[in-house]
Amino acid sequence: MNKRILLVEDDQNLGFVIKDNLTIQGYQVDLCIDGDAGWLAYERGAYELCLFDIMLPKMDGLTLARKVRTVNPSVPIIFLTAKSLQEDKLAGFEIGADDYITKPFSIKELLYRVEVFMKRSQVMHGYQQQVEIGSYRFDPESFQLSLGKEMKKLTRREAEILHYLHQRVNTVVKRDELLIALWGDNDYFKGRSLDVFISKLRKYLSVEEHVDIENIHGVGFKLRIKKS
């Protein structure tokens, strides 16, 4: 497995601390101190995970993440941010970020988050078989959702959610269960980000009238597949 990480952080002291600790854990880390340099590095490299500060010079982290998503919908993106406003975090999830860590954070927490994504990547790549979701075909390994000749490349987080729900098809999955299984906790902002991803998945599945993700108010979600 490729264990290469792109770290874009303009606080050079913090950047070096993060890089050193990740390197000790066996990761190869490329550190950039502004958004332009980060984008140039991304274009030239192949990364398993991205760590972006939001407040970056030359190109902010949100713009950088948006550019990355145009060429790679599936690479995990974690924001490192001092911002605590709800709008900033939700903006990141709308772009397609997978997680965020609010500064100040402990290096132990950062290493844990990175390890979770790396392990999850290995698990997703272990699924070889495509599955049918109504008239759709879903490939959990390549994150591809297809209907006839039309193909949609999901983000890693979207693919994880859809795969988790499909494993429990026509069964209510509790909201907290889904959050803890995929994010590791169930705080308010993770819950709002889950809503964003569910909304996107509903849109992708909207062509097939026999398939839907139902919101069971106050409980959770159910991937409903009716027999045609």
Rank of each mutant, 00 (worst) to 15 (best):
D98P: 07
H163T: 05
P140N: 08
S84H: 08
L56T: 07
Y47T: 03
D185R: 12
A97P: 08
F105Y: 13
S142T: 15
E177G: 04
R66T: 05
C50V: 14
K153A: 14
W39A: 08
R4A: 13
Y112G: 06
K190F: 01
V131N: 03
T155I: 05
D185E: 14
Q130P: 00
V8Q: 10
M1P: 10
E209L: 10
S135A: 13
T102W: 00
I77F: 01
V17P: 01
N13L: 11
Q122M: 12
L40Q: 15
F197V: 14
K89P: 04
V17W: 03
D11Q: 13
F197M: 11
A37I: 01
K203N: 12
H166F: 10
V211S: 08
F138G: 10
E177R: 07
N215Q: 12
G26H: 11
M118S: 15
W183C: 15
Q144D: 09
L6E: 03
F52E: 05
G134T: 02
I18F: 00
G220K: 11
R69C: 06
L51N: 04
A82L: 09
K108M: 05
L62R: 08
L64Y: 03
N72I: 00
G96C: 05
G96S: 11
D60Y: 01
Q130M: 06
G15E: 06
Y204D: 05
L51A: 06
A65S: 13
D99Y: 02
K200N: 13
Y42V: 06
R66A: 15
F52K: 04
A65D: 04
D11W: 03
F117H: 15
